[in-house]
Amino acid sequence: MQNNIEITLEATLAGHQNPIFTLAQPNNSQLLYTAGNDKGVVIWDLEKMAFQKLLCKVGSSVYVLKAIPNTNLLAIGMRSGQVLLLDSTDQTLVANWKTEHGAVFSIQILMDKQEMIAIGEEGYAYVWDLRTYQLLYRFKIAETTVRTIAVSNDQQQLAFGDKNGVIHVYQADDYQERIKKQIHSMPVTSLIYMNNHIISGGRDAQLFKLESNNLDTIQQITPHMFTVYSIDNGGHDDIFATASRDKTWKIWKEKDLTLLKNVSRDRFYDSHHLSINAMIWNKDRIFTVSDDKLVKVWKLS
């Protein structure tokens, strides 16, 4: 697949009035959720490639959406420090949690434990039980903002990236720190586990491929001109995609970080005019959202 990927723009979804920061998609769904500075979560119909409805209004900007696998639940992390858990089918509020200070930037799910973990501006992690909706743990990761969390494929490890460029690796069973290491010269903005590696992107426009057990650098490249805001591999173990403030998104080989595709206006794609803030890769589609208030739906073949 990797050397002959064809990418076409399937649709451009317009309707947001402000920059879009985040997106999520339920399992095997023909729906897409997006949110950002509009203070509301939008549902898009991917069969009609059109606006479906406003899922909910919220009191502040939304920085992260996370669909809980195998449920109708959607977690919403906000600038206010609130985390809402919504049943997207009947649009009811299931839980309303509040962190102690600052915005919520990242949410991940540990399905084996039925736990949800959120992290934000204050450097503390919050862990909630998805069966009882009770707060189980609160613990400090860093003295500064933590922007991103990744979960290993076997759900045994968590990686956190902080504003000082440090990556912290924790055991998922007891939330104890195993190792931390300065990797980037500026904030860590995106993380993903692939094979036995961690792929890390930062505001320093660097991409690192690291050994997951000791954070030793295997390879380092400059993939974009500006911040690497998002990394997703769509479930593949050989390729992954990155999206950046430089208005481009790209596909790379995991093995040696070789560039396979560069999707940008410079390469004659009808791509975004402004920063790409987030992306998700689901099967043969990649979705990107931007400061230009647009959602782009890309088809891979």
Rank of each mutant, 00 (worst) to 15 (best):
I192V: 14
K261T: 03
K283R: 05
L93W: 06
V169D: 01
N27E: 14
W249E: 06
W298N: 03
V169I: 13
Q82M: 08
N96H: 06
Y269V: 09
T227A: 15
Y137H: 15
A125K: 13
A50M: 13
Q52Y: 11
L158E: 08
D238M: 10
S230G: 15
E122C: 04
T222D: 11
D90P: 02
K283M: 04
L191Q: 13
N72Y: 10
H273I: 04
N282Y: 03
I107V: 12
S88W: 00
I198C: 08
V166M: 08
S152R: 03
G15M: 15
F51R: 07
G123Y: 01
V297A: 02
L73D: 02
I192Y: 04
V188N: 02
C56H: 05
K57N: 11
L130I: 04
N214G: 09
F21A: 14
S200N: 13
V263K: 04
I119Q: 13
Y126K: 12
E47G: 02
Y133R: 14
D154W: 00
Q219Y: 00
L260A: 13
G40L: 15
R203M: 09
K261I: 12
V263A: 12
I231K: 09
V169G: 08
K261D: 05
W249N: 11
K48M: 06
K253D: 08
Y269G: 11
S244K: 03
K293H: 06
G120R: 02
A172C: 11
I7M: 14
K250R: 14
F208Q: 14
A205W: 05
F139M: 03
K53S: 08
R245D: 11
K57P: 03
R178E: 13
Y126N: 12
A75M: 09
V188K: 02
T242F: 11
Q17I: 15
D174S: 15
